[in-house]
Design a protein around this nucleic acid. Structure first.
Length: 570
RNA sequence: CGGGGUGUAGCGCAGUUUGGUAGCGCACCACACUGGGGGUGUGGUGGUCGCAGGUUCAAAUCCUGUCACUCCGACCA
């Protein structure tokens, strides 16, 4: 390809709207352009990268005996009513009507469609297990699209769905997909981690997310410093302190804390560390008997809503109690609530339950209690893990301490079980001629997001540094004064043609631009291998080579150049 | 959905307070010089100032409404 005929829309200035580096660089390098909120055009260079990612995924999926299919983006609403997910998905599901007034949705995912297909096509256990995948556009009407293609409304996803007669077979394919995902992300050249994850509203039993580690990641991942344990912070268990709780040493005393509500204010006022205070949050209960529940965590900890809402007494989804409810339940404002002399059920976090001589709200506006202790002053009935794990906590795996890093979720695999096959009645006959509900797994990869994630991990002040596997072109040729020097032109065209004949993707910058412009553009768009040809080198019988990640270029003897380059390209 | 910000040429912005001929830089086009890191000069192209309504002799500027984009938060396979 020659740059003279390529749409290479590089810009000098950084667009004001882009905040993360990958978004900025994708715009600057002319990979994508915004059409509307969360909707992007992919320009030629960007699309080449996208296709490379797709092809790696496709090859690895095929290797794992998965079969590629293609399902429609537009799906009839009836399927979603059948699975009861039309309500569950809510506003994120974009609904449309056709000319006859029939309702459709733009597919945010394809569990329903594939399950429908399978219930129609698969009838015998002999056809199992089977694994289908597609690389297809999805649409999710995100509340807040942001970070370019990292969180867009329309995006491309590789989604796979496997079907099984039993749990063992599902577990086998799940493991195979786990390995396949590792192969895919390794081949792409990403620094990634498989992470234990919450199954979320998609349902199911076992789940791993695959995260690319980057500062701009939207997920918090907890790692062990001494093992390969990694879990989404939503899920990571905060262990109970191993030591016994200290005995009370102080008297329970009420102190005035006028207009001090937040943990910070009270700490400031009483000159305390945050960990000496217990934070009491009131949430909606699950039953009429207990409409309000108190959740107690240590002042320096954060409530983990996902853990909390899994508790029996707690309403789902987790909702904070209203002011009226708080007044009615404890007779004071939210900032003065505490577990002492409270009539509603109290659920204490494991670490909070381990505190002694603590400070808490007095259940009276303007007052807190100091020197409070469990059992002596407050009933400790329910203890549970309801906080976010934090840096320095012991790892739940038993080895090492916890470190928190940010991750970009690029893959997610689930063992769904029979949620959809039951809802949609997907059965096969087993070897006893009995109808049996299918077990199901699903496996997603955010294809467009991978492009952004790869940039987040591979860039410098000049621009993108593509991993070789997904670079839009492997090699670029930057000739010096080619339009004035027949010698340079001849050498350039010769190498260009040779590389093309070898099947190498090469980009020749044949624009009548100054060298600086060409260098800057090629570095911005991140082509891994650069060849510079000019009279200066030719006089010495040399051609210049530089890798995008290298500090310096090297001059290679003209006669040995192709051999040299071929070795670099392996 | 709550709170903030911004809409003026392809991009980045000034002009709005105090109403009076639509500006700058980059990009783009032409020519010349230049030529190993976004070079220089000369001359150009391009905007119903997001949209609608109102006030006024006169609106990018003031008022009302509306739409879009964006940031923070909540939300979220």
């Amino acid at each position: 390809m020659k740059t003279s005929s390529l749409l290479m829309s590089t810009t000098r200035e950084t667009p004001a709207d882009a905040v993360v580096i990958s978004h900025q660089l994708m715009l600057k390098a002319g990979l994508i352009r915004l059409l509307a909120g969360g909707l992007y055009n992919w320009l030629p260079l960007g699309l080449r990268v996208l296709r490379k990612v797709e092809n790696i995924i496709r090859e690895e999926m095929n290797k794992a005996q998965a079969q590629e299919i293609l399902m429609p983006v537009v799906q009839p609403i009836e399927l979603w009513q059948e699975s009861k997910r039309d309500d569950e998905y809510g506003a994120q599901l974009l609904r449309i009507k056709d000319r006859h007034g029939r309702e459709f949705i733009l597919g945010p995912t394809h569990e329903e469609v594939i399950t429908d297909l399978v219930r129609k096509e698969i009838h015998s256990y002999k056809q199992l297990p089977i694994n289908f995948y597609q690389i297809q556009t999805k649409f999710r009407d995100e509340i807040r699209p942001r970070f370019g293609v990292m969180r867009s409304r329309e995006f491309i996803m590789k989604d796979a769905y496997s079907f099984h007669l039993n749990q063992e077979s599902l577990a086998e394919t799940y493991q195979q997909m786990y390995d396949t995902y590792c192969n895919i992300f390794t081949r792409i050249g990403l620094d990634f981690r498989p992470v234990q994850a919450d199954t979320g509203s998609i349902g199911g039993d076992r789940s791993h997310e695959f995260h690319v580690l980057a500062d701009s990641g939207e997920d918090d991942i907890a790692f062990s410093t001494q093992s390969d344990f990694a879990a989404n912070i939503e899920l990571a268990e905060a262990l109970a302190p191993s030591k016994k709780r200290a005995e009370p040493t102080t008297k329970l005393t009420k102190v005035a804390t006028p207009n001090k509500h937040s943990i910070e204010e009270v700490c400031d006022f009483l000159q305390l560390k945050k960990k000496k205070i217990l934070k009491t949050l009131l949430v909606q209960g699950a039953t009429e008997k207990y409409p309000v529940i108190a959740l107690v965590v240590r002042g320096d900890h954060q409530l983990n809503e996902i853990k909390a809402q899994k508790l029996e007494l707690v309403g789902e989804p987790l909702t904070m109690a209203t002011e009226e409810q708080i007044q009615q339940a404890v007779g004071c404002q939210a900032g003065s609530v505490g577990p002492v002399n409270i009539t509603i059920p109290v659920i204490a976090d494991r670490t909070a339950a381990h505190c002694s001589d603590f400070v808490c709200g007095a259940n009276q506006d303007g007052y807190h209690l100091i020197g409070a202790n469990w059992d002596r002053d407050a009933n400790l009935t329910i203890v549970a893990d309801i906080r976010n794990i934090v840096k320095g906590d012991p790892s739940p795996c038993g080895k090492g301490k916890i470190e928190i890093k940010y991750g970009i979720e690029v893959g997610h695999i689930f063992q769904l079980g029979n949620k959809y096959s039951t809802a949609l009645n997907a059965n096969v006959l087993n070897e006893n001629s009995r109808s049996q509900t299918l077990e199901m797994g699903c496996y997603g990869i955010g294809v467009t997001r991978i492009v952004a994630a790869a940039i987040e991990q591979n860039y410098d002040h000049k621009g993108i540094i593509w991993p070789e596997s997904i670079a839009p072109y492997q090699v670029c040729i930057v000739p010096m004064q080619m339009h004035k020097s027949p010698r340079t032109k001849k050498a350039t065209i010769q190498i260009y043609n040779q590389l093309i004949a070898m099947g190498i993707e090469v980009l020749l910058d044949d624009r009548k631009e100054r060298p600086g412009v060409m260098f800057n553009d090629m570095e911005l768009i991140g082509i891994p291998h650069r060849i510079v040809i000019g009279e200066r080198g030719l006089d010495k019988g040399e051609i210049e080579y530089k890798h995008r990640g290298d500090e310096k270029s090297q001059d290679i003897n003209q006669n040995e150049f192709m051999e040299f380059l071929t070795r670099k390209l392996i």
